[in-house]
Design a protein around this nucleic acid. Structure first.
Lengths: 212, 212
DNA sequence: TGGAACCATTTTGAATGCAAAAATGATCCG
DNA sequence: CGGATCATTTTTGCATTCAAAATGGTTCCA
């Protein structure tokens, strides 16, 4: 198995899979489930530790990282800067096809909102933000964004969304698409910042912290 | 030897040491020089590959990463966003002691400029930028910044600096310190962006690219 | 009976071993 | 003499092994 594949699979298990933050990472079991030996698994663990998804306790194994309140704050702060930058870069670079793709995702997302289908809504939301980052055509930015997104995914999506916030988020997304279509880099960056700042407040207010 | 120490030492060898971009990484020799076996060294290689400092060629070993023109562009774009964010965050957070420290570094830097001591100038310059990032008090941001800085360090510091650019850079640094002292977040972000954009243009114009 | 001390077991971190792939270079043929 | 082919050596990636550290459980003594 390819090295990168082990890293991806492990990342998936940690961000969307069965190992909750703070839990011990069962080296043995994962080796069995991935059908590899400890060496490549441990290599992947070190990579994810460098990314912040895993904490290595010397001589005491590894655990899925817990987000503290400060972590959440820091991650959102950086995410804000990255998404704003992505928006600014995307405006002059985005293709018509990419714009259409985002407009379509947006329409789907509104549908899911109308149907109050939170999970599908989240999926579309995520795809839109990823599409904007992709349109910025900057692999370094995309890599950092993905790394941050992986770390806050649980916090983002576990936090319950109030009806008011949800409605507001939809409105903001209209603004995002609009700014993109007008290629208004400054405006887009501004909306994205506010959008994320609001989300962050919601997450923080929900008292979200996996442990201190 | 601690795992993180192997990573740091290897990073140092790659960014400031004897292995130039594009060169083969001599696993054997490094094992001997670090007095470790291949296992921990390979773990460190994977970590640095995830950071972008090393490229792993399947079944063909690892090489120090070369920066393409696009890499340089991308790294500077993200660096701009990160430094601007750091500046904005630092303004409300920076302590008087930290301000004094930066003012002192600035004075030293001007001294080195007067003496036309490029190496010492660079060292001060780097310490100032790192101090601003530190003042932002955001570990995630600091980590990303360090990772970017490591990757462009060679490009930055190998590019020769024209007398005009050098003079301008000094001026800009006056503005940076001034904005920090006035806690003018917006102004500081603006100056930092311009400062980096100029540097980037210089690096790109110098035709810098380690290979495509 | 409660708690400390000791030993067995498990787990971790790193070295070594092994099979497969790539690089090297020697030979053979046109 | 030049180029292709095949054997040999080296290197790579992973599994296994080994020593040291931590964990857990039992015993022993106050």
């Amino acid at each position: 198995m390819m090295h990168d594949e082990v890293v991806s699979r492990l990342r998936h298990v940690l961000t969307e899979g069965e190992i909750p933050p703070g839990a011990r990472i069962p080296e043995r079991e994962l080796c069995a489930s991935f059908a590899i030996s400890r060496t490549p698994l441990r290599e992947a663990l070190k990579v994810l530790a460098a990314e912040g998804l895993v904490v290595l306790l010397p001589n005491r194994g590894s655990r899925a990282a817990k987000l503290t309140r400060k972590d959440v704050k820091e991650l959102f702060e950086v995410c804000e800067a990255l998404e704003a930058a992505a928006g600014e870069l995307a405006c002059p670079r985005i293709s018509d096809a990419q714009l259409r793709e985002i407009a379509e995702l947006q329409a789907n997302m509104v549908e899911h909102y109308r149907a109050q289908d939170l999970l599908s809504y989240y999926r579309c939301n995520r795809l839109i933000h990823e599409a904007i980052v992709r349109a910025a055509d900057n692999a370094v930015l995309a890599g950092f964004y993905e790394s941050i997104a992986a770390r806050i995914r649980r916090a983002r999506f576990i936090t319950p969304m109030s009806p008011e916030h949800w409605a507001l988020a939809i409105q903001e997304h209209e603004g995002i698409l609009n700014a993109l279509q007008r290629r208004d880099a400054g405006g887009l960056a501004h909306i994205l910042r506010n959008h994320l700042r609001r989300k962050r407040e919601e997450v923080v207010r929900a008292g979200f912290a996996e442990g201190e």
